[in-house]
């Protein structure tokens, strides 16, 4: 199986061959209807994509869409068990499949906590800062583990224009406010200093008070 996968994918990666060329090969035509093979091809493309960047990654993403492999993940995203949905979220967001975002938005409110957090992180992986918009009316807790993952995903995005996170400070959900504080701290947004001071003075939540005090002191140093 590995030999077949290499024969099909290496030309995509190293000779810029498109899906049209690959699909015309005898090998692909022989295996195209084999479900097990297609699953293996799907997994191989996703795995390869994780190890390549730049133009190689773009070639793999294009192949993933044109070969309809994305449909395998989308099907799992729609109908799979919760753990299959989580895997599909991971695969689709890594492969930048924008059409999955509606499902991710839906699963951000799932009662299953693993699926919910995977959807939120997947959305941020897919959309970067734009994905944070879902948190505006978010009712579930964003725990410190999720905060660490969200910041990690945003770092990977490497977006140069960083928006202001003051909208998160206005949330009624204290854990979302804390995420906002952590993002302000991470991106050293001193322009939000006054908002943080105000928050510090008005909040009755001990954890938030402690956090804002710490961040205000840290931001004053910049």
């Amino acid at each position: 199986m590995n030999r077949y996968l290499e024969q099909l994918l290496f030309p995509v990666l190293f000779h810029q061959q498109t899906f049209d060329t690959i699909s015309a090969t005898r090998l692909y035509q022989k295996l195209a209807n084999d479900v097990v093979f297609l699953e293996a091809l799907h997994d191989a493309v996703v795995k390869m994509h994780a190890t390549y960047s730049g133009s190689h990654a773009i070639l793999l993403r294009t192949f993933f869409v044109e070969s309809n492999l994305a449909e395998i993940s989308l099907k799992k995203l729609r109908k799979g068990a919760w753990n299959e949905k989580c895997q599909a979220i991971r695969d689709l967001s890594q492969m930048h499949i924008d059409s999955s975002s509606d499902y991710l938005l839906e699963y951000c409110n799932s009662p299953n906590d693993t699926l919910r957090s995977e959807a939120l992180i997947g959305l941020i992986r897919l959309k970067g800062f734009e994905g944070l918009a879902v948190l505006q009316d978010y009712v579930f807790d964003v725990n410190p583990w999720m905060i660490i993952n969200i910041i990690h995903q945003l770092n990977l995005h490497n977006q140069t224009v960083v928006p202001t996170f003051d909208f998160l400070l206005k949330s009624k959900n204290i854990t979302v406010v804390m995420l906002g504080c952590r993002l302000i701290e991470h991106y050293k947004q001193a322009e939000n200093l006054l908002l943080l001071v105000e928050l510090n003075q008005t909040t009755s939540h001990a954890g938030l008070k402690e956090l804002t005090t710490h961040i205000v002191e840290k931001l004053k140093l910049f």
């Binding site: 753990n83 895997q87 693993t114 995977e118 660490i148 910041i151 990690h152």
Partner: peptide, 18 residues
């Protein structure tokens, strides 16, 4: 075990919030 498949522990290594 099912949930843990989706955990990437390496994010803790790089995080200031660890």
């Amino acid at each position: 075990l099912k949930s843990n498949e989706f955990v990437d522990y390496s994010v803790l290594l790089a995080s200031e919030l660890a």
